[in-house]
């Protein structure tokens, strides 16, 4: 078992709900934002490596990615910075498969390991296509976090869960990343289905938009991923606002 899953399991055993903010790598202020998140109660951070065609992302994360790309950010530059972050919590990257396919899964997995990354999330790489990447990732000790979607029939979920390392990413709604007024019913429904079939940590992401919604999902799931609501704060008010927000979500999910 890898470091991320190890830590998440023991924190869960100690009664802690898990909080994973998403931050767009290369967006101005992303490194201090990660440090602020770590200092304010994040259990891991998901670092987005911007891709030109992010089909799972809504307007906020698209904008942040596009801006970072316009500044000339590259995967190598982000991974290089990651080695200097000096935070205690495990780090995951989230990116799209072409950035893995281009250098090749073996080289990409090795690059992640060298940068000290624990895990990877590739939202356009479903189970059926994941073979070559998973083999390379396993060989380098990179944990591949698999996404489970509300549309998955019952016979599909166990196969997704089996292949997941680190945690299972329970997709909160039918749709792309972005903030929503209220939590979709599907968010807790899918988390329940997943909890019934696995003891791997289950975290809900996509469409969990504020502290109240984070509280709601963590009554069922082991934790929560916060994306657009974090990136919007980074874009509007900078890294300190990210720290404040993470603290706010932390205290909400810690309440009984």
């Amino acid at each position: 078992m890898g470091r991320l899953e190890d830590e998440f399991r023991s924190k869960r055993a100690a009664g802690r709900k898990l909080l994973v903010p998403y931050i767009t790598g290369g967006y101005p202020g992303w490194q201090p934002a990660i440090r602020a998140a770590a200092a304010n109660g994040a259990d891991a951070v998901e670092i987005g490596i911007p891709f030109s065609d992010p089909v799972m992302d809504g307007p906020v994360i698209q904008q942040a990615s596009q801006f970072a790309l316009e500044q000339g950010v590259t995967p190598a530059a982000i991974l290089d910075e990651v080695t200097r972050l000096d935070v205690e919590i495990p780090l995951a990257v989230m990116t799209y498969y072409n950035l893995v396919h281009h250098p090749g899964p073996v080289r990409f997995a090795a690059d992640l390991r060298r940068a000290g990354i624990s895990a990877a999330i590739l939202p356009d790489l479903p189970l059926e296509e994941a073979g070559p990447w998973c083999a390379a990732a396993d060989a380098e000790g990179i944990e591949t976090i698999m996404l489970a979607a509300p549309t998955a029939p019952d016979d599909r979920l166990p196969r997704v869960v089996d292949r997941a390392h680190g945690f299972v990413y329970s997709v909160g709604l039918l749709g792309v990343t972005g903030e929503r007024e209220s939590l979709a019913e599907s968010a807790t429904a899918l988390a329940k289905r997943l909890k019934a079939i696995t003891d791997k940590p289950v975290l809900v992401g996509v469409g969990v938009s504020n502290a109240t919604q984070a509280y709601e999902v963590t009554r069922v799931a082991d934790g929560v991923i916060q994306g657009a609501s974090v990136v919007r704060r980074l874009m509007e008010d900078g890294p300190d606002a990210v720290g404040d927000y993470v603290a706010e979500v932390r205290s909400a999910i810690d309440a009984d």
């Binding site: 089909v55 799972m56 498969y97 939202p123 356009d124 790489l125 479903p126 189970l127 059926e128 296509e129 698999m146 996404l147 489970a148 979607a149 509300p150 549309t151 998955a152 029939p153 599909r156 997704v160 997709v171 039918l174």
Partner: peptide, 20 residues
């Protein structure tokens, strides 16, 4: 069966769309 013509094709979509 994987939707490939030789080495090309396949189904690289978000998990949500796989059942569709």
């Amino acid at each position: 069966e994987s939707g490939r013509f030789g080495e090309f094709g396949g189904r690289f979509v978000p998990e949500t769309l796989v059942p569709a």
